[in-house]
């Protein structure tokens, strides 16, 4: 095994690790958007996806692309996502707040369906 092969292997492993972590964050964000109780809490779950998950996946792809012009383009896409996603989140939140959307402010802790059956 030559040195180049080892470097390529390390690059592939790092890329796979970054990709897997990013996918976990993206899927968790999507699940959170489905499961959380009200609009303002769902907004947080969407934030997980947009900040860290997207950046990790973009960095993983940059590792795959190597030191080329394509990597610079990917970096630009990541930068634009990094700039726009919090701005869009704030815009949605601000619009909802101004439109009089009331956030849920009490503790939300529903019992598991199995436990509820046990109570009844």
């Amino acid at each position: 095994m030559t040195v180049t092969e080892i470097i390529l292997l390390i690059r592939d492993i790092a890329s796979i690790a970054l990709m897997a972590t990013g996918l976990v964050f993206v899927l968790a964000g999507a699940l959170g958007v489905l499961r959380l109780p009200d609009f303002f809490t769902r907004m947080h779950a969407a934030g997980v996806t947009d900040t860290l998950g997207a950046e990790l996946i973009v960095f993983s792809l940059i590792l795959q692309a190597g030191f080329t012009l394509l990597a610079a383009k990917l970096l630009l896409v990541g930068f634009i996502l990094f700039l726009t996603s919090p701005t869009a989140t704030h815009a949605v939140a601000n619009a909802a707040h101004r439109a009089g959307e009331k956030p849920l402010l009490s503790r939300f802790h529903p019992k598991h369906p199995r436990d509820r059956e046990g109570d009844a």
Partner: peptide
């Protein structure tokens, strides 16, 4: 706003 948020997140994905 749920729909707008979902649409935005869908676009990111």
């Amino acid at each position: 706003y749920d729909r707008v948020l979902a649409a935005n997140s869908f676009g990111t994905k």
